[in-house]
């Protein structure tokens, strides 16, 4: 199955994983990557910059109604949920927190599942909250694919652990194997 979108969700302990994985992602991937991380809205985080210098792919924080392009990495801004309006454009939303979080990983994952269906791939990383698990379940229900960080390798294992329990057949990956798995996605057509 072709991949139209790759979503990456993470909370506590996920940034170190991203800094390891992003540099090894090929620049010719055939889909956009959307990253949802729990982070503080103030002071303005240096996260964009940190991720930007870690990879040759263009990284940007999304603006309202931005059009997604293949081969680019999009960061969900602090204090907004990200929804997909259609396959190319996103909409931001400041509605109530979900799982005590805004952005919420579930909100973006659920929205992606309903728009991209079986062409959705999602990766859930380290974290101390169960945000993202319900979204992964929905992606699987839409026949999309789900990757979970091996809880043993996670700085905070609660999130991947919960995901694994909800989805016992999902692919479990150690950080050093994630980039490979992602690069493989472009070969499915």
């Amino acid at each position: 199955m072709a991949t139209d979108i790759l979503l990456i969700g993470g909370s506590a302990g996920s940034i170190t994983v991203l800094l390891q994985v992003l540099p090894a992602i090929d620049t010719d991937i055939s889909f956009p990557i959307v990253i949802v991380l729990h982070r503080k809205s103030y002071p303005k985080s240096e996260l964009d910059h940190l991720l930007e210098i870690s990879t040759a792919l263009p990284v940007q924080e999304v603006d309202d109604k931005m059009e997604l392009e293949n081969g680019k990495i999009y960061l969900v801004p602090a204090d907004y949920h990200l929804l997909f309006e259609d396959e190319r454009s996103i909409a931001l939303d400041v509605s109530e927190k979900v799982n005590y979080s805004r952005p919420s990983i579930d909100v973006t994952f659920l929205s992606a599942a309903s728009i991209f269906g079986d062409r959705t791939v999602a990766l859930l990383l380290s974290g101390g909250n169960k945000d993202g698990v319900e979204g992964l379940v929905s992606i699987v229900e839409h026949q999309g694919r789900v990757l979970i960080q091996d809880p043993v390798t996670a700085e905070v294992d609660y999130m991947p652990q919960q995901a694994m329990e909800a989805l016992p057949t999902a692919t479990i990956l150690r950080p050093e194997h994630m980039a490979d798995a992602i690069n493989q996605l472009k070969h499915y057509k």
């Binding site: 929804l83 939303d93 509605s95």
Partner: peptide
């Protein structure tokens, strides 16, 4: 209005 948000509401 943006459909994605309306639908959630």
């Amino acid at each position: 209005y943006s459909k994605a948000s309306l639908k959630r509401r």
